[in-house]
């Protein structure tokens, strides 16, 4: 899967439900300690599945830092 110029960004109001981690095709999202979802940006391909699935709508796709 080709990396896009976008990467997911998880907001602070994440409820740590794990929906994003379940749909991530790269296993880039984890929920350490059950506090908040954390993204491994190296693994993220910017497919946006997590943003579409997030029930709280706190995940957005943003420009990748190194792309600027």
């Amino acid at each position: 899967m080709k990396k896009s110029l976008k990467v997911a960004s998880i907001g602070r109001e994440c409820v740590a439900c794990g929906c994003c981690a379940a749909v991530c095709p790269r296993g880039a999202i984890q929920i350490p300690y059950g506090i908040i979802a954390r993204l491994d940006e190296e693994k993220c391909v910017g497919c946006g599945k997590c943003a579409k699935t997030c029930p709280a709508a706190v995940i957005t796709l943003v420009e990748r830092r190194e792309a600027l």
């Binding site: 976008k6 990467v7 997911a8 960004s9 998880i10 907001g11 602070r12 994440c14 506090i35 908040i36 954390r38 993204l39 940006e41 993220c44 943003a51 709508a57 957005t60 796709l61 943003v62 420009e63 990748r64 830092r65 190194e66 600027l68």
Partner: peptide, 17 residues
């Protein structure tokens, strides 16, 4: 996590959903 949740996700600025 509260401090870094926005910073370390590789984001420069929000560009919509």
């Amino acid at each position: 996590y509260g401090r870094t949740s926005q910073k370390d996700s590789g984001a420069s600025e929000t560009s919509g959903q």
